[in-house]
């Protein structure tokens, strides 16, 4: 469908262009970043902004659709961090290591400390700890 060159349409199209650039950057990020966690930083978050901008731009092209498009944006904003958090947490629990250049991992340190403490109490009480 051809669109007339009204100012509103132009703003919408430019927003869509910026958004799709961020979509592309997100995909480039997952190729360039070294490990899963950094991939997530680049991939899922840059695509969130890309999503917001693209959908807003397309919404400006079709002003009557804005309520529904805002609903889709809200849905993406709520679900996207949850899915990337779930994935990162599962990967960390499964023991996926951080990239070589990483400076510290305080979660692994704390988990190891708790495991050591539990092993110690188990040994001293002579019985298994419930749960």
């Amino acid at each position: 469908m051809t669109m007339p060159d009204t100012p509103l349409n132009l703003i919408g199209a430019v927003l869509t262009l910026f958004g799709s650039m961020f979509l592309f950057l997100g995909a480039l990020g997952i190729i360039r970043m070294p490990d899963l966690y950094n991939k997530m930083q680049a991939g899922t978050k840059a695509t969130t902004l890309g999503n917001i901008l693209t959908l807003m731009g397309l919404g400006l092209l079709m002003p009557g659709w804005l309520p529904k498009i805002v609903l889709i944006i809200l849905f993406v904003l709520i679900t996207n961090p949850i899915s990337s958090h779930a994935l990162a947490r599962a990967a960390h629990k499964a023991g996926l290591p951080l990239a070589k250049g990483s400076v510290l991992d305080q979660l692994r340190e704390d988990e190891d400390a708790i495991a050591a403490f539990e092993a110690e109490t188990q040994a001293s009480s002579g019985k298994g700890v419930d749960g």
């Binding site: 958004g19 997952i30 695509t47 890309g50 693209t54």
Partner: peptide, 20 residues
């Protein structure tokens, strides 16, 4: 897990394409 992240990104790019 790396494939899962790629899948996540892929769907996030496809969604605006569907709106388009």
């Amino acid at each position: 897990p790396n494939r899962a992240v790629a899948l996540d990104v892929l769907t996030l790019i496809t969604m605006p394409l569907l709106v388009g």
